[in-house]
Structure formats: structure tokens, C-alpha cells
Design a protein around this nucleic acid. Structure first.
Lengths: 193, 193
DNA sequence: CGCCGAGTTGAACTGAATCAAGAAACGTGG
DNA sequence: CCACGTTTCTTGATTCAGTTCAACTCGGCG
């Protein structure tokens, strides 16, 4: 997968860029091909990069009392970064891990800022990405707060039917805010007598 | 409170505008002085306005099985709108209600879009507002998911110590995703024998 | 093979919900 | 300024969804 193909996907899912902007973007971004379980960001680092997932998937997670809690999944044609670190310029509370063999496009905040100043369209692209994430998070709050474990699971299946094939159940459980055991019971409902 | 004072607060909490942009903003925005319990948005409406709260407070809520669930609070120097309706151009699932006697600045999406096209700074202002909201929502997900009712309450008190003086406990409870009864017990811990 | 991590199953426990009264605070009109 | 009704909040008893802890199964891989 080359730069042009990847950018075509960015433009398809966000917005079209001018040739000039696209050319500058190419200069400052880097294609990465990664194994599963590669860590893109470690807790404590300044995570001033954003990644576009051209192929594969990744998750952001943190350790709470030594338990691994998944906070966010990202799949192909979406961006992922460590939002607190990226936007607030603080050490990352999150790890970011690639979940499958993946192809990513990496861009630094510095270059994002430069491109956003130079090209209003690029600034817009960022705004759209943030807005989409905001709306997803909003949905998630409602889901976490007022749905049963079962409904939350059905919900994520609806949004991403292939998730159970692509992501370990442990991660799905912690993302949903339920235990692995509960998730397992939901998936294998005991026969009532 | 006049337009200039309100805009000074917007600029203080978000970013400084050029005189030209400020002048155009004045032309298209409207100051509203409202009683408590005024509805700014009703469920089902196209809510294509955004409000800056110069003074007072408001909440977004929805009805789930006839129960009133508060989804978001906004206080002075913040924006509020019905995010789903505003960004996706769909009928609002939310109501928005003013909680205290308030002074608001109202701007339509149409004008926001016009100003965002004309002034990169104004576009940025929007991006900053969205980003701040995103980070707050992110915090909220963590809080809802892994804190006890007690911790959630202490949490909100830390962020907004005066909330219990300004907002009905019922609304705080539903915002935290707990029942009014549980909130009451947390606030009045029974003496252990 | 035999081990190891991932997932499953079982039983006991618990934090918060629900249901049901009651008390306080609030406001409005006599 | 008091009486009454309404809304808001408190308290108690019971129930339940989901957690916890512990043991077991299964599939892959060295």
C-alpha cells in the first residue's frame, strides 16, 4: 500500500484535499508496516503523533490497579492517538497497541499544526475527525450508563460485527466496562431448565 | 451584559478574534436573557443553534422510558448545543433547558459555517471548543465506567464544587448514572453503629 | 506431548436499583 | 404570615445484575 492509496482513503472518509496540500502531507508523513502487538505509545511518553490506520487495528489502553483497561478501539480508515497527551501536551496515561498486522500513516503534531495553518482544508479535516470522535464518545456514554451488559455487547456487535474475530474478548470486556466472565456468560447463555 | 463584554469572555476562554471577525460575529449573534426552566430546544426539533452561556447554566437531557436523564451540564463561559442535531443535521433527541436565570449568546449553524469559512480564527475557536468537550467526555467515560457511585459524586464536586447549590440533585444523579436515592445516601452517610 | 494463555463455568457475595413511605423545603394565595 | 399543596429529598427493606474468586476446558505451539 503506497502513500497515494492511503491518502485516497483519508480523503474518501474525511474530505478531499488540494494537490498542494496532499503533496505537503506526503512530505511530512510516514508509512509504517507493523506486527500485531507492537506498542506505538507507552505510558508516560509524550505522544505527539497521530496515526491513520490504513489497514488493521489498534487500541488505546491504560493500567488501573494493574488491570489492563481498553479505552478505545480504532480500525481501518480511522485515526488514533493518545488524546490527552496529544491535545494537552502531557505525558500519556495510555498505551497504544497495534492489534493486527497493520499499515499506518504517522504524522507529528508539529506537522499537523503547520499544515493546519497553511491549509484551511487540512484544519477542517482535523475538525471533522474530532467531531466524529466526539459523537462516538457521546453514544458510548449513553451506552455505558443505561444499558445492561447484554445490550452493550449487542450494541458493539452492531457497530462492528467482526470485532470478536479481530480483538481478544478480554479487551472487548474491559472496553464495555464488564468483566471477562460476564461477557463469556452473555455469549454462551446457559440453557434454562 | 452587552455584546462586547460577552465576547471578551469568549475570547478569554477560547481565543482572541480580529476586530473584523468580532464585528461580523456581532451582526449574526443574538443576546438572550432567560428565566430558569426555559426550554431552548425541544426533542424532535432541528436544533441548529449553539449557545454561549455568558451567565447562568443549562443542561441537555433526554427522556428514556419517560425518565428524565441529564446528559450534559454547561455553565458560564461554555457553549452548549444539541450535538447530534447540530452536527448531524437530524432532529434533536435532546431537550436543552436553562437551569438558572441566564444570559446567552445564540448563533445559528449557518452563520457559524459562514464565519468559519471567512475567518480561520473562528474555525479554530470551534475546533478548540469541540476538543475541550471531547476531553471532558473522555474523562467522563472513565469515571462512569470504573468509579463507584461515591467516587463519581466526589469527582463532580471537585470539578464543580457549587453544583449542588445550582442544580437539582435529581439532575446530578441522572448525570452520574445513579439513582436519586443512592445519591442521597452518599450525601448523608448513615452512622455506622 | 505438556504447558500456557485465553476463555468458560460455578457459587457466593455485593453495590446499587427498586419499591414504598415519610420528611423538608418551597411557593402561592387566603 | 400561616396553611396547604407540590416538589424535592431522605430513609428503609428487599432484590438483582454483575463482580469476585476459584477451578476447569480447550486449542495452539515449543
Amino acid at each position: 500500500m503506497n502513500f497515494e492509496e492511503i491518502i485516497a482513503n483519508v480523503e474518501l472518509h474525511f474530505l478531499t484535499l488540494t494537490d498542494e496540500c496532499r503533496r505537503d502531507l506526503k512530505k511530512v508523513s510516514k508509512i509504517m508496516t507493523l506486527e500485531r502487538e507492537t506498542l506505538l505509545v507507552k505510558e508516560g511518553q509524550l505522544a505527539d503523533k497521530t496515526y491513520f490506520i490504513a489497514k488493521g487495528s489498534a487500541r488505546a489502553f491504560y493500567l488501573k490497579d494493574d488491570k489492563d483497561i481498553t479505552d478505545w478501539f480504532a480500525f481501518e480508515n480511522n485515526f488514533i492517538n493518545s488524546i490527552n497527551s496529544f491535545f494537552l501536551h502531557i505525558p500519556s496515561p495510555h498505551f497504544i497497541e497495534v492489534l493486527e498486522p497493520s499499515i499506518l500513516l504517522e504524522i507529528s503534531r508539529e506537522n499537523i499544526d503547520l499544515l493546519s495553518d497553511r491549509y484551511q482544508e487540512f484544519d477542517r479535516l482535523g475538525k471533522i475527525a474530532i467531531t466524529k470522535t466526539l459523537l462516538q464518545l457521546q453514544q458510548r456514554v449513553v451506552s455505558i450508563q443505561f444499558e445492561t451488559a447484554q445490550q452493550k455487547y449487542e450494541n458493539i456487535l452492531q457497530i462492528r460485527p467482526d470485532i470478536t474475530q479481530r480483538v481478544a474478548l478480554t479487551h472487548i470486556a474491559s472496553y464495555l466496562g464488564i468483566t471477562l466472565e460476564t461477557l463469556s456468560r452473555i455469549r454462551n447463555p446457559k440453557k434454562r431448565i
